[in-house]
Design a protein around this nucleic acid. Structure first.
Length: 885
RNA sequence: GGGCAAUUAACUCAGCUGGUAGAGUGUCUCCUUGACGUGGAGGAAGUCAGGGGUUCGAGUCCCUUAUUGCCCACCA
C-alpha cells in the first residue's frame, strides 16, 4: 500500500482526523502496569474562564513533547488534564454576565442563585479550552479529566483543611490582610502586585497634650489613615524624642488622645523619626500595635469608604477623605509641608485596584512548619529546577514566608468547612454540619460564609487528581509526577504550594523536576494582553499554518526559562520546514517500487554516502536523546531541522539520484532501503515535536506497522557510526562546493559542463574522488574526471581548487579570466595564511605544548601540515598564473 | 535596598561540561535540474556591551562598569 501525498502540505487536511484516530485508539490512556515504568505530568489546569492563548500553547507543547517522547520510550505515560474553577476570575465574569443579561447584582440573585448560574457557566464555557487543546495536539488522558470542584477533589480539599486544622496549622484570627475594595475580598500576599507610584509625603504636627505649642511632626503617605491612629512611635534611642516617650498627643481632627511609644521598628533617619501608628491599616503598625497592646481601629468599610469610626469623614471614599483630611489639617495650621515621594503601592492582581491593608477576621495557614520540608526538598535536590536559577526564587520566597490567608469573601469556590454554634459561638470544623455543639449542646449552626483561596485546591492537584485521599492504584503508580512544566510567573502561587502540600500529605515531593519557561511576547517584546490588543490567537495560527508549525516555532530558538518573541516569519520558516519534509517524503514514495526491503539483502551494496548518512543518523539519535534528557528541547528540535533539511534533503537525496535513476536494480534497491530507513527514523525523532505531519507521513509508508505515536524511540547504534565514511563525504562535499563556488565566482553558468582533472597528493584521495565521480557529474556538472600525476597534462588555462590531499583543475578555456582567478587565489592565500598563523602561534606556545591535551596538539600539528601544503599549492599556482597574465 | 536575567551578523535568537563563532529571516548573484519556488546553488556580513582577571587557551569561568528588562522587600 503506497499512498500519495498531495503536492503541497496542507495541515488542515489531516490534523483533526489524526487527532481523533489517536483518541479512538486510546493512545493517551495509560494503564497501571507494574511491569512498565510510569511517567507522569500534571497539566497546570487552565482557568475555566480562559481561552487558549500563546502561553498555554507554549506550556502545553513542552509537556506534549515530553509525554510523547516518553511514551515512545516505552513508559506508561500519564498526562493528567483538567481545569481550575479560578475563584475570583470566574466570579467576576459571572457577576458581569448576570448584570448584563438580567440587570441584577450578586446579592439580588443570592448565594444559591449565583452558584446555579456559575455552574451553568462552567458547563457552557468550561470545556472550550479542552477542545482548543486538542487542536494543538495535546495527548492528555481525557478520560481522567478533572475539575478542581469535582466531588473527589472537593473531598481532598476538605480533608486537607481538617487535617491542617487538627494539627493546628490552620487557624482563624483577626490579623492584617490585603483587602481589595473592588472584589470585596481578602487576598493573599502573593495576590498583591506592587508598583512604584508617585505620591506625596505629608508632614503633620500632632500637638503634645499639656504642653502648649509643642508638637510632634510625623510624616505619612496615606493621611486618611490617621483617623485610625492609636499611637505615635519613636525610636527609643532617639534623643530628640526621649522626653516625649510616655506622653500623650492629641490626634488632630479626631481629638482623641494617643500615646507616644518607643519601638525599635522606627528608623530615626527616615522622615521625621516619628511614626503615626495605625494598627488596623498597616502591616508594620499592626505588629507594633501587638507589641504595645494598642487598640485596632478599622476606619474603612469593605468598599474603602470611611466608616462611622472616621467621624465627619464617614461615607467618603478613601481618596476623597484624603483630600478632606489634608485640607482640614491645612486650615488648622497643622500641615507642615508636602513633599514628593514615590512609594510602592499594592494592587489586586485581578482588577488592579489599590489594595487596602486592614485587620479582619480570616482563616490562615501557618506556614513555617510547612515551608521547612519544602525548602529542604529543593536544597537536597529531590526537586530540581530547570534552569537551576529558579530554585533561588523559590527558596527566597519560602524562607521569608508569612502565614497564608486562605479565606475569601466570595461564593464561587470550596466553602470553608467551619460551623458556628448559634447559641454559644463555638467553632466546629468538620466535613458536614454537626448535630450538636460539643460545648453547649446547642443544635443550631451556621456554616462559614467564605470560600477558600483558589490556589488552596490547585496546591493539591498532583495527588487530588489521582484520587487522594483514597489510596487508588493510580496514585500509587503515578505519584510523584516526573516533571512540572510551568511559567516562572507562577512559582509562588502554585509551585511552592504544591511542594509543601505534597510533602505534607503524601510525604513525598509532588514532582522531581520543575521545568520553567518564560512568557511569549509579541514581536515588539511586549507582553500580550487584552488591553493592548496585541494578543495572537493560537487557534488562528493553527488554522493558517498548522499546529505542527506553531509547536515548532514555540520550541526552537529559545532557551529554558527565557521569554520569547513571537514572529510570523519564524512561523513561516517552521511551516516551510514541514513542507520540506512533506516533499522529501513524496520523493521517496515516488521512487519506491518494492514494498519491503530486507537490510541483509542490500547492506553489502552500501556506498560511502549510505554509510555516511547512517552514521550521521545515529549520532543524531544520540544527541537528540541527550538533549531531551536535559530538557533542551529547543536544541533537539534545531538539530532535527538541520539534519533533515541540510543533510537528508540537500545532500543525501541528491546523492541517491544517480543510483535511483540508473539501470542497476541492486543499487536502486539499496537506495530505496536507506532512504526509507532514514525517513522512518526522522519521523520518529520528529514526532514529539511535530506529531501530526509525522503521523500522516508515517501512514503512507508501506514499510512500517502501526502508528508512529506508539513506535519505539530510535536507539543509538554505535556500530553504525562510521568516521571514515564521514571524512570521505566531507571531502567530496567540500570539493563539490568549491567547484560550484568557483563557477559562480568566475561567472560560469552552473549548467555549463566542465571537465575536471585531479592531481592527488595522497593516492587514496584520488581513489575516493574516482569512486564518487557520479556525484561530481550530477551535483557539480562535471562531464569527465581525469586523474593525473603531473601538471604537465593539465591545460594551462585551468582554474584550480586546492583541497586537502589533492589539487583539482577545471579547464574553462575561453571563459577563464586570469585577473579574476588571481584575485580568487589571493583570497584563498590570505585565508590559509591566517589559519597557519593561528596554528603556528598555538604550536610555538610552550604552555600549550605542555598543558593542552595530547590529542589536541596532534590535531593542530596535522592541521599545520595540511594548511601548509595547501598554501604551497596555491602559491605555486599563483606564480604560474602571474607569469601568464 | 536586595536578587535574577539579557547585552553575539541588518533583525530575532541558539551556542552543553572553556579548544579555529552558528541558525532563521533579510540582503546580493545565479538557477523553469524529472520531491519541494513554502524550492535549489553560491556569496557578503560579528574586536561575542566596555574594562580587568584566571588559564597554554575565554562568547563560555571570576570580578567590575554601563544599558535594558523582570522579581522580591514593612522604611512610615
Amino acid at each position: 500500500m503506497i499512498n500519495n501525498l498531495s503536492i503541497t502540505y496542507d495541515p488542515k487536511d489531516f490534523e483533526d482526523r489524526i487527532y481523533h484516530s489517536w483518541e479512538e485508539k486510546g493512545y493517551f490512556r495509560p494503564k497501571v502496569d507494574p511491569n512498565k515504568k510510569p511517567y507522569s505530568i500534571v497539566l497546570p489546569p487552565p482557568n475555566i474562564t480562559g481561552q487558549l492563548h500563546m502561553g498555554h500553547a507554549l506550556d502545553h507543547t513542552l509537556q506534549d513533547v515530553l509525554i510523547r517522547w516518553k511514551r515512545m520510550q516505552g513508559y506508561e505515560t500519564l498526562w493528567q488534564p483538567g481545569t481550575d474553577h479560578a475563584s475570583i476570575a470566574t466570579e467576576v465574569k459571572v457577576v458581569e454576565k448576570i448584570k448584563e443579561e438580567e440587570g441584577l447584582t450578586k446579592q439580588d440573585v443570592g448565594r444559591e442563585g449565583f452558584l446555579q448560574r456559575a455552574w451553568k457557566w462552567k458547563e457552557e464555557y468550561g470545556g472550550r479550552i479542552v477542545e482548543q487543546m486538542k487542536k494543538l495536539g495535546d495527548s492528555c488522558d481525557w478520560s481522567r479529566e478533572r475539575f478542581t470542584m469535582d466531588q473527589v477533589l472537593n473531598d481532598a480539599v476538605i480533608e486537607v483543611f481538617l487535617q491542617l486544622y487538627n494539627k493546628g496549622l490552620i487557624y482563624r484570627g483577626n490579623r492584617i490582610i490585603n483587602w481589595c475594595p473592588e472584589c470585596k475580598t481578602s487576598l493573599s500576599d502573593a495576590e498583591v502586585e506592587h508598583e512604584d507610584k508617585n505620591g506625596f509625603f505629608w508632614h503633620i504636627n500632632y500637638p503634645v497634650v499639656g504642653m502648649e505649642g509643642k508638637y510632634v511632626e510625623i510624616a505619612t503617605t496615606r493621611p486618611e489613615t490617621m483617623l485610625g491612629d492609636t499611637a505615635v512611635a519613636v525610636n527609643p534611642t532617639d534623643e530628640r524624642y526621649k522626653d516625649l516617650i510616655g506622653k500623650t498627643l492629641m490626634l488632630p481632627l479626631m481629638n482623641r488622645e494617643i500615646p507616644v511609644i518607643a519601638d525599635d521598628y522606627v528608623d530615626s533617619e527616615f522622615g521625621t523619626g516619628a511614626v503615626k501608628i495605625t494598627p488596623a491599616h498597616d502591616p508594620n503598625d499592626f505588629e507594633v500595635g501587638l507589641r504595645h497592646n494598642l487598640p485596632q481601629l478599622v476606619v474603612m468599610n469593605d468598599d474603602a469608604t470611611i466608616n462611622e469610626k472616621g467621624g465627619k469623614y464617614a461615607g467618603l471614599d478613601r481618596y476623597a477623605a484624603r483630600k478632606e483630611v489634608v485640607k482640614d489639617l491645612e486650615e488648622l495650621g497643622l500641615l507642615v509641608k508636602v513633599k514628593d515621594h514615590t512609594h510602592s503601592v499594592g494592587q489586586c492582581y485581578r482588577c488592579n485596584t489599590v489594595v487596602e491593608p486592614l485587620t479582619s477576621l480570616q482563616w490562615f495557614v501557618k506556614m513555617e512548619p510547612l515551608a521547612k520540608p519544602a525548602i529542604e526538598a529543593v536544597r537536597n535536590g529531590e526537586i530540581k529546577f530547570v534552569p537551576e536559577r529558579f530554585s533561588k526564587v523559590y527558596l527566597h520566597w519560602l524562607e521569608n514566608i508569612r502565614d497564608w490567608c486562605i479565606s475569601r469573601q466570595l461564593w464561587w469556590g470550596h466553602r470553608i468547612p467551619a460551623y458556628y454554634c448559634q447559641d454559644c459561638g463555638e467553632v466546629i470544623v468538620s466535613k458536614e454540619a454537626p448535630n450538636s455543639c460539643k460545648k453547649c449542646k446547642g443544635s443550631s449552626f451556621k456554616q462559614d460564609e467564605d470560600v477558600l483561596d483558589t490556589w488552596f485546591s490547585s496546591a493539591l492537584w498532583p495527588f487530588s487528581t489521582l484520587g487522594w485521599p483514597k489510596k487508588t492504584e493510580e496514585l500509587e503508580y503515578f505519584y510523584p509526577t516526573d516533571v512540572l512544566v510551568t511559567g516562572y510567573d507562577i512559582i509562588f502561587f502554585w509551585v511552592v504550594r504544591m511542594a509543601f502540600s505534597g510533602l505534607e500529605f503524601m510525604k513525598e515531593v509532588p514532582f522531581k523536576h520543575v521545568f520553567m519557561h518564560g512568557i511569549v511576547r509579541d514581536a515588539e517584546g511586549r507582553k500580550m494582553s487584552k488591553s493592548l490588543g496585541n494578543g495572537i490567537d493560537p487557534l488562528e495560527i493553527i488554522n493558517q499554518y498548522g499546529a505542527d508549525a506553531l509547536r515548532f516555532t514555540l520550541l526552537t530558538g529559545n532557551s529554558p526559562g527565557n521569554d520569547m518573541r513571537f514572529h510570523v516569519e519564524k512561523l513561516e520558516a517552521s511551516r516551510n520546514f514541514a513542507n520540506k519534509l512533506w516533499n522529501a517524503t513524496r520523493f521517496v514514495l515516488m521512487n519506491l517500487d518494492v514494498d519491503n526491503i530486507d537490510r541483509a539483502s542490500v547492506e553489502a551494496n552500501f556506498t560511502t554516502a549510505d554509510h555516511w548518512i547512517m552514521s550521521r543518523m545515529n549520532q543524531l539519535i544520540k544527541e537528540v536523546t541527550e538533549n531531551m534528557d536535559r530538557f533542551e528541547l529547543g536544541l533537539a528540535a534545531q538539530k532535527l531541522y538541520d539534519f533533515i533539511w541540510s543533510e537528508y534533503c540537500d545532500w543525501y537525496i541528491e546523492l541517491t539520484k544517480p543510483r535511483l535513476y540508473g539501470e542497476n536494480q541492486e543499487n536502486r534497491k539499496t537506495v530505496q532501503y536507506t532512504l526509507t530507513y532514514i525517513l522512518e527514523n526522522i519521523l520518529k525523532l520528529l514526532h514529539p515535536f511535530m506529531p501530526f505531519i509525522t503521523e500522516e507521513i508515517w501512514g503512507t509508508l508501506a514499510t512500517v506497522k502501526g502508528d508512529v505515536i506508539v513506535s519505539p524511540w530510535p536507539q543509538y547504534n554505535e556500530g553504525e557510526v562510521n568516521y571514515k565514511a564521514e571524512e570521505e563525504m566531507n571531502l567530496i562535499m567540500g570539493i563539490i562546493k568549491s567547484i560550484r563556488n568557483v563557477k559562480a565566482e568566475m561567472n560560469v553558468a552552473p549548467s555549463r559542463k566542465a571537465k575536471m582533472a585531479v592531481l592527488p597528493s595522497k593516492a587514496e584521495v584520488g581513489e575516493i574522488i574516482e569512486g564518487a565521480k557520479q556525484y561530481f557529474f550530477t551535483l557539480a556538472n562535471i562531464s569527465e574526471i581525469q586523474l593525473v600525476d603531473s601538471k604537465e597534462e593539465i591545460p594551462a588555462d585551468s582554474v584550480s581548487i586546492v583541497a586537502e590531499g589533492a589539487e583539482i583543475f577545471l579547464p574553462l578555456e575561453d571563459l577563464i579570466d586570469f585577473e579574476k582567478e588571481i584575485e580568487r587565489l589571493e583570497k584563498e592565500k590570505q585565508k590559509l595564511e591566517g589559519e597557519i598563523k593561528r596554528v603556528v602561534g598555538k604550536l610555538s606556545n610552550e604552555g600549550f605544548l605542555k598543558k593542552a591535551p595530547e590529542k589536541l596538539i596532534e590535531e593542530e600539528r596535522e592541521k599545520q601540515t595540511k594548511y601548509q601544503q595547501m598554501l604551497d599549492t596555491v602559491l605555486e599556482r599563483l606564480a604560474s598564473l602571474k607569469g601568464k597574465a
